[in-house]
């Protein structure tokens, strides 16, 4: 890996809500084809960082470059164009409740392209299959699906335009351990098959062990350290120590070690 391509570059980012500073002078790089896990305590601004990178939240200062587009001062046309190149999976899927799963998947397709309905239907079927949903889930409404299925359907919509980068906001929150492990596996499989770059905000230590190439720890208003899980285990910062050496972390490490065997 000599020449790695930067997909996301964040420099000197500052976010403030009223008197409360969430990020101060935050730097972060994400490389093409990697799975980056972002961890941090509650209120450390993980979700805010995600929302700022995808342009849902206006930063106070700093620069963000996503796929070569300036996400803070970019012109509207460029922003519209870059939106076709990344997908976002919100916490509970954020599916449009008045549309079926297939229609949800077709929303971005119809917005950006003029395609015949039979091809649209076929694309929707392919995405539904891709995320491991049964074919009959396609014409169901979100309210008729379980939490895990809604997440998969949300992922299918995020993948509708075949994005290069996918953002996940706590993808395994609210799933049972079996469902969470299956979802991790799905993310990994799709990431490898489609060559995706994944930016994942998570709390799930199992996910970190199972699928993340690199981890970024958010604390003290900036990215404290980044690196592989091994780097994290060597880190001496008290919060990182507690996070990666706590009882839950040990359990996750044991599981991961057993999986490798």
């Amino acid at each position: 890996m000599a020449e790695r391509e930067r997909v996301i570059t964040v420099r000197g980012l500052t976010n403030r809500f009223g008197e409360h500073t969430v990020h101060e002078n935050l730097d972060l790089d994400v490389w093409r084809g990697e799975v980056l896990g972002v961890v941090g305590g509650s209120g450390s601004g993980k979700s805010v960082l995600l929302r700022t990178i995808i342009g849902l939240n206006q930063a106070v200062s700093g620069s963000i470059d996503l796929l070569g587009t300036d996400m803070i001062d970019g012109d509207p046309d460029a922003l519209r164009a870059v939106r076709q190149r990344f997908g976002v999976l919100f916490q509970d899927g954020a599916l449009f409740s008045s549309l079926t799963v297939a229609q949800n998947i077709q929303v971005p397709l119809k917005e950006f392209y003029d395609l015949p309905q039979d091809l649209l239907d076929e694309i929707a079927a392919a995405k539904v299959h891709m995320v491991g949903l049964p074919a009959d889930a396609a014409d169901k409404y979100p309210a008729e699906l379980s939490g895990g299925m809604r997440k998969r359907a949300g992922l299918a919509r995020a993948l509708a335009l075949d994005p290069e980068v996918v953002f996940f906001d706590e993808p395994t929150a609210g799933l049972d351990p079996i469902g969470a492990a299956a979802f991790d596996q799905l993310v990994r499989d799709l990431q490898q098959a489609l060559g995706l770059t994944v930016f994942m905000v998570t709390h799930d230590l199992d996910s970190l062990y199972a699928i993340c190439d690199r981890i970024a720890v958010l604390a003290e208003k900036k990215v404290l350290v980044t690196g592989s899980i091994e780097t994290m285990l060597q880190e001496k910062h008290p919060w990182v120590m507690e996070y990666f050496h706590g009882p839950r972390a040990r359990a996750a490490a044991i599981t991961a070690a057993m999986d490798k065997r």
């Binding site: 079926t100 297939a102 229609q103 077709q106 309905q117 039979d118 649209l120 239907d121 076929e122 929707a124 079927a125 392919a126 539904v128 299959h129 891709m130 074919a135 009959d136 396609a138 014409d139 098959a193």
Partner: peptide, 12 residues
Amino acid sequence: YVGGAGEAITVW
């Protein structure tokens, strides 16, 4: 992936 998908589904 795509070849494994079922037939196109009814959307409406």
